[in-house]
């Protein structure tokens, strides 16, 4: 990584930290949204520069955890900023999303970065499908977790008569509930495709489809948890299922941030 890249990355992290702070401030000063959105936009521009600088050198994308996180968080923030123009639920999601983005970028940026060598196994249509659907699934499930947090906050607010500043600005509970279900469904679908594509590709490359390595096992667990959540939604009220969604999200975070550091075909340590 060049010095310029390092400086840009530092600035991006600072900007996201500020964006997180200003989003929290916006809860208490509803008219200060402009500042929150402004810093977020600045962070996104800086991050775009980091990505541009990074991908100038000719090597495949997504090959280090760092690069993958950059693309993922960039997409999330872009969706948040663009979608927030129309959707109230998305605007309110910022206060959770910004800290999440910051904490996803932070370890990726400070962990040792060994540029992954161009591996011949990492090419072809199935890889492409596997990587894009896995990225999309992670993004959608992050939004799902944010929605679940908002649902929990609002539900508790109404149940225990705690009307904090944030309570007044959230969309109705039923809207959040529908979003929770919808996002979980889409996220689970994408995850299923990603796993399927990964299995096919592994069969092509290594001639064994499933080897129970840590990544595969943990991803299977995460997939089971989300499937459990989607199924439980049909039989249990929202208040009971939200903790399961957050539990599944915890598994996903470990999957993405920790398991990928272990040796194996998914290792970002190359």
């Amino acid at each position: 990584m060049t010095t310029l890249g390092a400086w840009l990355m530092g600035a991006t992290l600072v900007a996201y930290a500020l964006a997180a702070v200003f989003h929290i401030r916006e809860l208490y000063l509803p008219r200060s949204r402009r500042l929150a959105v402004g810093t977020t936009l600045a962070a996104l521009v800086l991050e775009t520069a980091v990505i541009a600088e990074r991908f100038r050198s000719p090597h495949a994308a997504f090959l280090s955890l760092y690069e993958w996180m950059l693309v993922l968080t960039w997409l999330l923030v872009a969706v948040y900023l663009v979608g927030g123009v129309r959707s109230r639920a998305l605007r309110r999601a910022g206060v959770f999303l910004m800290p999440i983005v910051f904490f996803f970028l932070l370890p990726a940026a400070i962990l040792p970065r060994v540029a992954a060598a161009q591996r011949p196994s990492l090419s072809g249509w199935w890889v492409w499908l596997h990587l894009t659907t896995a990225t999309a699934a992670t993004g959608v499930l992050i939004m799902q977790a944010v929605t679940a947090l908002m649902y929990m906050h609002l539900e508790r607010g109404i149940r225990y008569r705690m009307f904090h500043a944030f309570y007044r600005r959230l969309p109705p509970l039923e809207v959040l509930d529908r979003l929770c279900g919808g996002l979980a469904g889409v996220g689970l679908g994408l995850m299923t495709v990603a796993i399927g594509a990964g299995v096919v590709w592994a069969g092509h490359s290594w001639h064994h489809y499933w080897s129970w390595n840590p990544k595969e096992s943990w991803t299977a667990l995460t997939w089971l948890l989300y499937t459990g959540y989607v199924a439980a939604r049909r039989y249990l009220p929202g208040r009971r299922t939200v903790p399961l969604a957050l539990f599944a999200f915890g598994a996903l975070v470990i999957d993405v941030l920790l398991i990928n550091l272990l040796p194996g075909p998914h290792s970002f340590r190359a």
């Binding site: 109404i158 109705p172 509970l173």
Partner: peptide
């Protein structure tokens, strides 16, 4: 208002 907060 509370009812709307739940059901829209």
């Amino acid at each position: 208002e509370l009812a709307r907060k739940v059901f829209g």
